[in-house]
Amino acid sequence: MEKKKDKGLSPVVATVLLIVMVVVIGLIVFLWFRGMTEETITKFGTENIRFACDDVYFEADYSGGTLYVSNSGNIPIFGMELKDYGPGSHTTENLRDYSTTWPDAGLNQGGTFSDAVPVIGDELILVPVLMGESDDGKRTFVCDEAQHGVSLSV
């Protein structure tokens, strides 16, 4: 009787295949998971820009159709979202695009801004916009309105 020949993969090839499969599956899971998480924007090196928003401090006033903003904190404010709340609706403008007097480099520490801003509603909310760094280069970040927005009665 002829002896049946043993066929199959050698242990070395099997181990190599196993490692390659684990690495490939790991990469796929990593890339999939990365797509689901938000890209981190940093400021001042490695600090997440969300924490920089906590240190933003500015004062604002609206009188006689003119909006006054003064940056009295340690964080430069690149832009400012202006939400005009009227009855049943609101509009949002960025002061950078809306006003020609907003400084190109943003409102640095101690910087001030004033310009005529026509308002339709009865409440204005100013939300600071910061400039940070990401893997794709410089990116803007709008701070959280509930935490960092400043409300003005018109």
Binding site: E59, D61, S63, G64, Y68, S70, T112, F113, S114
Partner: peptide, 13 residues
């Protein structure tokens, strides 16, 4: 140092 030029101006700019 910042100034206001009227009593109506709430924020010194």
């Amino acid at each position: 140092i910042r100034a206001t030029n009227s009593p109506q101006q709430g924020l010194a700019i």
